[in-house]
Design a protein around this nucleic acid. Structure first.
Length: 402
RNA sequence: GCGUCGGUGGCGGAGUGGUCAAUCGCACUAGACUGUAAAUCUGGCGCCUUCGGGCUUCGAAGGUUCGAAUCCUUCCCGACGCA
């Protein structure tokens, strides 16, 4: 695809990390880059100008959500997602594969896609499948969803997901996959992986058969859960297909996420960009970059912001805590974001207590900027050769109190 | 002065003889959140606790009863009505 390319500028010695540039029809992305999440075609509580002000380079929106509302045809008819959102920078769309998980296996329970060692014993059995009220059901051809808003039934297949993403018109789109729960059995993981592989091929073939492949890049998604053999098998297969780049999706062990990333990236073709899907905690991002990921998106900065949580160099803090009521300091010392340059913790805490929406906006600005700036730091130190020191210093401070 | 209705935990407001330390909402307080079912969710919220339980509460004081926030008497306070 001629409007899309990736170049690597420098690599980290003795590991898979690198810095580079992704060229898209709507501008360049300096990598590694944090992709901010705008599921329904908006980064919640922020205008595009405010998003830009955080330093974020890319936004990722969601196929499932925009298909349901307002409808991908509508978006197409009003000139595409870039125009609708008034965002003329690089844009991505996720395929809806994550909703296979969030509205399927994860629906109605507290389980996330990241497993902690503690959960291990109590959650191994996945036998009670049919008793849980799921609103996504998987079959070999695709997934039947029941809309989480109005209960109406919809069917997403690889072809359908690609068609929707073509209508939306993002610069980078994803193959339709199945994100599995970390608590599924190996047997199930295997079965799901084979399905995801078939879907990847179908996504790619369908994409190539349309004109859109000339202006939109398609990334294939590696799955395989927490199993090394499956991850490698998946990287091998997905990496062999003619995708423009790759996503690494699915479930992980919190403790050795970077190992899983390494399994994949040591096999995926080096010259194409890799996106670690849905990961964004500081420790995870350092690991991901070191192990060769170029992009990652995460809802965390904006989601936690809306409930009063903010990042500082000394770790996360809850602005609703009593101690911040008269704290005149900025959210994080030396932070260059709009919120920190202009407001105190005390005032923003007041906004939250008073349920004023500006509070969510300011914390979202701060949190996105925090992560973006952290990744900027990675890029700079890879360039200057100080990455390891930067990483050690950052993580030492960040996790000092936990 | 007479009459009516009312006084419940920080606030609003349930309960009207035992299952009541007292539903619920708000406020307060702490926690969670990793391709957004999310401006959401969970816990705590009289006092003490070795978490089994123990102790003191429903305007005040008396009383009835095996047992009272709930029934009776008097008093205090509030709202409304009549004078």
């Amino acid at each position: 695809m001629k409007d899309f390319s990736f170049e690597i500028h420098k690599e980290l010695p003795n590991c898979l990390g690198r810095i580079g540039t992704i060229h898209t029809p709507h501008g360049d992305i300096l990598t590694p880059a944090f992709v901010t999440v705008g599921t329904k075609g908006t980064v919640k509580s922020l205008t595009p100008e405010q998003v830009k002000g955080t330093g974020a380079q890319v936004i990722i929106a969601n196929t499932y959500h925009l298909y349901l509302q307002p409808g991908d045809e509508t978006i197409k008819n009003i000139g595409g997602l870039h125009k609708a959102m008034n965002w003329n920078g690089p844009l991505m769309t996720d395929s809806g594969g994550f909703q296979v998980f969030s509205l399927g296996a994860a629906y109605g329970n507290k389980l996330g896609k990241i497993a902690n060692k503690k959960d291990e014993e109590l959650l191994l059995s996945d036998t009670a499948e049919d008793e849980k009220p799921k609103i996504a059901r998987i079959d070999p051809n695709g997934v039947m969803f029941r809309s989480h808003t109005d209960g109406s039934a919809h069917y997403l297949s690889p072809e359908k997901s690609i068609d929707i993403q073509h209508n939306l018109g993002a610069d980078i789109i994803f193959a339709f996959d199945e994100c599995t729960s970390p608590h599924e059995s190996l047997h199930y993981q295997k079965e799901a992986l084979e399905r995801t592989h078939r879907w990847a091929k179908r996504s790619l073939e369908h994409h190539k058969s349309k004109e859109n492949h000339k202006t939109q890049a398609l990334f294939g998604i590696v799955q395989g859960g927490r199993d090394e053999t499956l991850r490698k098998e998946s990287a091998e297969y997905i990496g062999s297909l003619d995708f423009d780049g790759f996503g690494i999706g699915g479930s992980f062990d919190k403790e050795d996420m970077d190992k899983a990333v390494e399994w994949c990236n040591s096999i995926l073709p080096k010259e194409k960009p890799r996106h670690l899907l849905g990961i964004g905690e500081p420790i995870d991002l350092f690991g991901a970059v070191e192990k060769g990921c170029d992009l990652f998106d995460c809802v965390s900065p904006t989601r936690i912001a809306r409930s009063g949580m903010f990042y500082t160099k000394e770790g996360r803090a809850n602005l609703l805590n009593q101690k911040f009521r008269e704290d005149l300091k900025p959210l994080d010392e030396n932070c260059k974001c709009y919120a920190c340059q202009n407001f105190s913790r005390s005032y923003i805490a007041h906004l939250f207590h008073a349920k004023e929406i500006l509070g969510a906006t300011l914390l979202s600005i701060h949190n996105i900027h925090f992560v973006v700036a952290m990744v900027d730091g990675m890029r700079e130190t890879i360039s200057s050769g100080n990455f390891e020191a930067y990483k050690q210093d950052f993580l030492k401070k960040y996790y000092a109190n936990s």
